[in-house]
């Protein structure tokens, strides 16, 4: 085992452990209720989940495609979409400030609003 290999093993182990710690830290429920929907880096909707009525909104992507955003009992999720991978639907409801709902094909992001702005 050469010195270079040892250093690289240590670097890989460090990255792995570091990312695990980061993941654990990011699993915290948010106490904020302000949620924003961002498309192509522009905020297109802002919801206060504690005040919103249950409803479903269809968001059309500029290149033709859609995502159905569902608000229910103070939670928000993408209930259906016509994107190719459906990752956004499988993500489920928005829980953490660190983990947004992302639909990469439609460049749509749902996240908790930054507290510094609100």
């Amino acid at each position: 085992m050469t010195k270079g290999v040892k250093i690289l093993i240590a670097a890989a182990a460090l990255l792995f452990v570091g990312s695990l710690v980061w993941i654990l830290l990011s699993f915290r429920d948010s106490d904020s209720t302000i949620v924003e929907v961002v498309q192509n880096n522009k905020v297109i909707y802002t919801f206060d989940l504690s005040k919103e009525k249950d409803r479903t909104i269809r968001v059309n992507a500029p290149d033709g495609g859609w995502n159905d955003i569902k608000i229910e009992n103070g939670t928000i999720c993408i209930s259906d979409a016509d994107c190719s991978d459906h990752t956004c639907v499988k993500t489920g409801v928005l829980r953490s400030e660190q983990i947004p709902i992302v639909c990469l094909p439609h460049r749509l992001v749902i996240r908790y609003a930054d507290k510094r702005d609100s």
């Binding site: 890989a12 990255l15 792995f16 570091g18 990312s19 695990l20 980061w22 993941i23 990011s26 961002v38 192509n40 880096n41 660190q98 983990i99 947004p100 992302v102 990469l104 460049r107 992001v109 996240r111």
Partner: peptide, 23 residues
């Protein structure tokens, strides 16, 4: 690529998951 395409840094929050899974 995702940061450039979506124009937000939000997707960076997936990065630790990707690193751990990638390892």
């Amino acid at each position: 690529a995702a940061v450039l395409m979506t124009g937000t840094l939000t997707v960076l929050s997936f990065y630790p998951f990707l690193i751990a899974a990638g390892c």
